[in-house]
Each structure stands twice: as structure tokens, then as C-alpha cells.
Design a protein around this nucleic acid. Sequence first.
DNA 1: CCCTTAATAT
DNA 2: AATATTAAGG
Length: 298
Amino acid sequence: MREDDSNWFARWEEELPSPDELMPITQTLITPDLALAFDIRNSTNSSANQPVPPPPPPLPTSSGNGNPSLATSQHNSSEFAADSSAELGSGTGGDEPARTLKRPRLVWTPQLHKRFVDAVAHLGIKNAVPKTIMQLMSVDGLTRENVASHLQKYRLYLKRMQGLSSGGGGGGGGGGGLSATDHLFASSPVPAHFLHPGRPPNSDHFLPFVPVSALQHHHHQQQMAVAAAAAVAHPQLQAPNGQFDHPFLARPAAQQQAVHRMGPPVHNAPVPGYVEDLESANGNAGRKVLTLFPTGDD
DNA sequence: CCCTTAATAT
DNA sequence: AATATTAAGG
């Protein structure tokens, strides 16, 4: 019943073993396959090709904007050294990690989606193509295909809305127009010009993009990941209609093309992504998902 | 080569 | 249901 929910939050901390205990575990989870998977990075973009028009990193906040200016710090070293010598073929599989490793499915959290929307809003409809969006989002671990897939669905969502936005009414949630499958998209405000093709935003467009503050706090990360996973597992906790506003902060991405070699193992645990076991009561157990944005918050 | 869309798979 | 993957056309 209800008590369950409230207690869950209160007791949630007690459930956690201890930060130090979790640390090694998470590292174990990501190092083996994820490290490789991420390092490889898809795409055949081998040549130093930068056909991308200058993505405006420093966005001057439009005046009159009620948004607080945020710092634009973007550094995050997500280099992790996979200790191949410690692998020891024993255990699972035995052979060396295949190069054809499949990464876990990406979970589009409201925060991640928001970043996606902001990026699209800033690029403009015409420039909002998977590659550009991906680069602007600067979320490491995020692939072009991830974005493309999401973009496809998002466009369908926008079209669907235009269709039934006329006539007013809309009848909140009722009717057959709105699907229960739009939870994610509904959690983020859609810029007006998205719905009106052929009409670029007049002069100043708001949206200073979300300047990710570089927070390098590591200790609450586990809890964050848990919270993110919980959000996925309990979508009902999010406001079905209202905004999903969390004090969470976005996490900056690592320098993409910059290849910095770190020889000696460092204690750095930037965790590019997060792997959690998502148990489902619907026979969907055992599936692993990748949770990005382990945003750290104080 | 990359993007878009539809269909299909997991 | 949510994502990923593939196929075909531009």
C-alpha cells in the first residue's frame, strides 16, 4: 500500500551496503565488456573529419531569459584502462572478449531526453541530424544510432501531436490520440517551433542549452544510479503530466576525439555509463540496461 | 557517406 | 513497451 512507497524512500539508504563495497562492483561490471565497447565507438569515422558546422558551444543566454546562467565546463575524463592481464580467461566464456560485443540497451531517462530536445532546439530543425545532435549532446557512450532511433520516434511523436492539436480539446489523455507510449516525450516541453514547420524562431531563441556543470563528485553516484534505475522501474513516480524536475545535474561528456593515454591505473571512476540489472515481473528479467547520466548532485 | 522512413527483431 | 537493427530510397 501507500506506506510502502514512503518507507521505500526512507529506508532506501539502509539497503545499500556501503559505498566502498559498491564501487568495486560497478567497476567490475563496466570494465570487461563496456570498456571495450565504448572504446571502439561505432561508426567508420576514422578520418579526422569535422564536417560539422561550428556547434556553438558558448551560448550567450538570451536576455530576458528566466533561466539562470550556468557554467559551461566540459571536461570529463572517461578514460578507463581495461586491465587485460587481470582478465584471466576463467569464468565466463573463457575466450577473450569478442570484438562483437553488444552493448546493453540505452535507457532514455527524462534527463537524457531533455538534453536531446535542447540539442535539437539549438541546432534547428534542419541541422538536427543524428550526428550533430549526438555531438552536441556530448554524452559519451551515446552512439549515432542511439540518437537516430530516438529521433525517429520523436519525429513521429511530433507529427502525431500536430495532427490532433487542432480543435483544441485534446481532452487530456483521453481519446485515442495519445498513447501511453509517449510518457518519455511528454516529460519534456516541446519547443513551439517544432510543431510549426516553416517558421523559424524569431530572432532570439531562448534555450541556452543546458550547460553541463562539471561535477566531479564521486560518492553519491551509486545512489544516483539507483535513483535513475528506480525512475525507470517506477515510471509512475514521475509526474505523468507535469514536469519531471529533479535537482539532478547533467553530466558532461568526455572529450571525444581527444585520446589521452593514462598508463597507470587511476582511481578515477567517471563511469561513462551504468549497467544495472533490471528485473521485470514480466518475464523480462536478466536483461541489462545502460543508464547514462549518473549525474552527481550534492 | 549520411539521413530518413518503414518494417522488423529483440 | 522501448530500443535496436535492417532495408530501401535520396
